[in-house]
Computed example of a mutant assay.
Amino acid sequence: MFVLNQASHLEEPWLQFKNLLVRQLAFCVCSPNILSDTPPELVLKHTFQFHDNAIWHGHFENYRARLLYLDQHPQELEIFLQQLKSTRLGLRFEMFIWFWLLEPDYHPYQLLGHSIQKIAGPRTLGELDFLLFNTESKAIEHWEVALKYYLAERDFSLPYWYGLNRSDTLLRKLNHFSQKQFQFEDALEHKIEQRFAVLKGQLYLPIESKVSAIPNWVNLQRRLGYWGSHIPPQSADFYRLQRQEWICPQQHISSDTAHWWSNGLYLQKDKNNFYMYRNLPLLSQTVKG
Rank of each mutant, 00 (worst) to 15 (best):
E189P: 02
H190A: 05
H190M: 00
H190V: 08
K191A: 14
I192N: 11
I192G: 11
I192W: 08
I192F: 12
I192T: 12
E193W: 12
E193Y: 11
E193G: 08
E193D: 11
Q194D: 02
Q194V: 04
Q194H: 14
Q194C: 10
R195E: 07
R195F: 10
R195S: 03
R195M: 00
R195A: 04
R195H: 08
F196P: 04
F196T: 07
F196K: 05
F196S: 00
F196Y: 15
F196R: 09
A197P: 02
A197R: 05
A197N: 06
A197G: 06
V198H: 10
V198S: 09
V198P: 04
L199C: 07
L199D: 00
L199M: 13
L199Q: 02
L199R: 00
K200E: 06
K200P: 05
K200T: 00
K200A: 01
G201S: 10
G201V: 11
G201C: 10
G201W: 06
G201L: 05
Q202A: 13
Q202W: 11
L203K: 07
L203G: 06
L203N: 01
L203E: 03
L203Y: 07
Y204S: 07
Y204F: 15
Y204I: 10
L205K: 10
L205S: 09
L205Y: 13
L205T: 01
L205R: 09
P206A: 11
P206Y: 15
P206V: 06
P206T: 10
I207P: 00
I207R: 01
I207M: 12
I207T: 05
I207A: 01
E208R: 12
E208T: 15
E208I: 14
E208H: 11
E208A: 15
E208L: 14
E208V: 15
S209T: 15
S209R: 00
K210H: 12
K210T: 14
K210L: 01
K210R: 08
V211W: 03
V211P: 01
V211Q: 06
V211K: 00
V211H: 04
V211N: 02
V211Y: 02
V211F: 03
V211M: 09
V211R: 03
S212F: 08
S212L: 13
S212K: 15
S212T: 13
A213K: 04
A213V: 14
A213M: 09
A213E: 01
I214K: 08
I214G: 09
I214E: 10
I214S: 03
I214N: 13
I214R: 05
I214H: 09
P215E: 04
P215M: 12
N216R: 11
N216Q: 08
W217C: 05
W217G: 14
W217T: 08
V218K: 00
V218N: 00
V218Q: 02
V218C: 09
V218R: 00
V218Y: 02
N219H: 05
N219D: 08
N219T: 11
N219M: 11
N219W: 09
N219G: 14
L220C: 09
L220I: 07
L220V: 05
L220K: 10
L220E: 02
L220N: 11
L220Y: 05
Q221V: 09
Q221W: 01
Q221G: 08
Q221E: 12
Q221L: 09
Q221H: 13
Q221K: 12
R222W: 00
R222C: 12
R223G: 06
R223K: 13
R223L: 08
R223M: 09
R223C: 03
L224P: 01
L224F: 07
